[in-house]
Nucleic acid binder design. Sequence first.
RNA 1: GGUCCCAUCGUCUAGCUCGGCCUAGGACACCAGGUUUUCAUCCUGGCGACAGGGGUUCAAAUCCCCUUGGGAUCACCA
Length: 513
Amino acid sequence: MDPRAPRAYPLSPASSPIEVSPVSKPVRVRFAPSPTGKLHIGGARTALFNWAYARRHGGQFLLRIEDTDPERSTKEFEVAILEGLHWLGIQWDEGPDIGGPCGPYRQSEKYPQYREVAAQLLASGHAYHCFCTTERLDALRAEQESRKERQVYDRLCAQLDSAQSARRVAAGEKAVIRFRVPPGETVCIDHIRGDVRFSHDEVDDWVMVRSDGSPTYNFCVVCDDVDMGITHVFRGEEHLVNTPKQVLLYQALGKPMPEFGHLPLMLGTDGKKLSKRTGDTALQDYRDKGFPREAVVNFLCLQGWALDGTSVLFSVEQLVQHFDIKDVQKAGAIFDPEKFRWMAGEYLRKESLETLAAHCAPFVVAAGLCSADELARRSAWFLEVVKTEQARISIYSELPARIAYLFQPDSAVVWVDEAVVAVKKHAAAVQTLRDYRAWLEGRVSGGVDAAALRDAAKAWAQERGLKLPAFFQPVRLALCGVVNGADMFDVMALLGGPAVLARLDAAAQRLGA
RNA sequence: GGUCCCAUCGUCUAGCUCGGCCUAGGACACCAGGUUUUCAUCCUGGCGACAGGGGUUCAAAUCCCCUUGGGAUCACCA
């Protein structure tokens, strides 16, 4: 199969047909993470943009694993990254797990190919063996540093006779292979920044193949992008300075060049490249904290891109319909956890009770409040629980702490100090609880009707000349042990008559003692 | 330090490509009201930015230059 051949995809709903822009060749983009850690949110955004671009232009999106660093790459991270991408809702058309016509999609499985290309470059004179030791290189750098000069390889080995070098290597001498950067300058086409110009004086004779024979990043990327027919390379801005090295390699290889786009960096609150220091950087952390998936996608895409000037909330379908690389912002974006949390809440509030309950359940179980079985048995009840809290939480993991009172023994509801202090201000609190309990007894025997009870109870309190807080604060303490929360009568419905009465009794006693 | 990139409210952004519709729009946060038994949600209003300086032009947030500020990168990591 021709990897450049267009393929049909089930795109977004038929109600919104996607307009395919006229491009000269079918778009093929890729996301190429290195499995040296969990999926970074910056990487997630890069993947999302690439994916959206492919979908928007009727092209293909591939996944490639860049595991040429054996020290730090692990299978576990690779799996985690794939999971993360799946969770975001991104599907790839070719990749290490599903294969494809341009495989392998894992760089560690392509060493023979790289060796071949390296040999070719050596033969054509575009690359040369370098026998310089790490010690010499370190000394060279130290010297350049002390003279405040640019730190580059001095090309000592560039003059060596290639035949002679080949013999030394054959004899077992350790050597790296460096790319021979010609004089001149290179212009890189960048769809976000415009053309970027680099003088070759600034480009080092970089190492393509290490002394142990393993290929380096800049070398593999180009080989793979060529092999895979990649037409557009959209990646983080930190790669911008690598681009001339890669462009030169395409030229040396005589291969068609992809177009580039360097995405603005996602920055921490300190204005620097987002790192663990300034907050959670792994996509998984946000999933584990219970951020709605759609909110994560929406928020990440809003870092550097906007649907229009006014819509903050948009769907994946809208992203795919409207995304274009030229609309991506040039300046870095500071990641704002507050806004992220707000957006999570927006999505959480839009979920149906069933969906929200399903999303929250694992967190409730994990918090040890009750078993998954029990939750399943009381699903109708749990739906009501979720209903009372939907407007009060922003992420799923916030639910357990808020509903813990429901699972506490009636005689030992956990009371927070603040609530107790507030109640003690009402001299008649204990009496109020006793009277209310007596009044309530006959009214909850057949189940709790929150609406009816609400009106009746307010009237009752008013008749007795009780200010509302003097009534509600003691009751809330008795039932929930906290100062604020869901509607008092909704809570009673959740608790059920017997538990309500038991808690009122217990509270009167605890307060009276 | 060299090279490269960037620059609109505190933050995310619209506007910049093709100067006039901009007394610069939206959102988060913040502040003040309203609704409510509390909290949250929700509603209304407010605060708040074109980094500075030069040009070009009848007209500049938008084009050009300089300055300043911030960032990225300088490995046998990716």
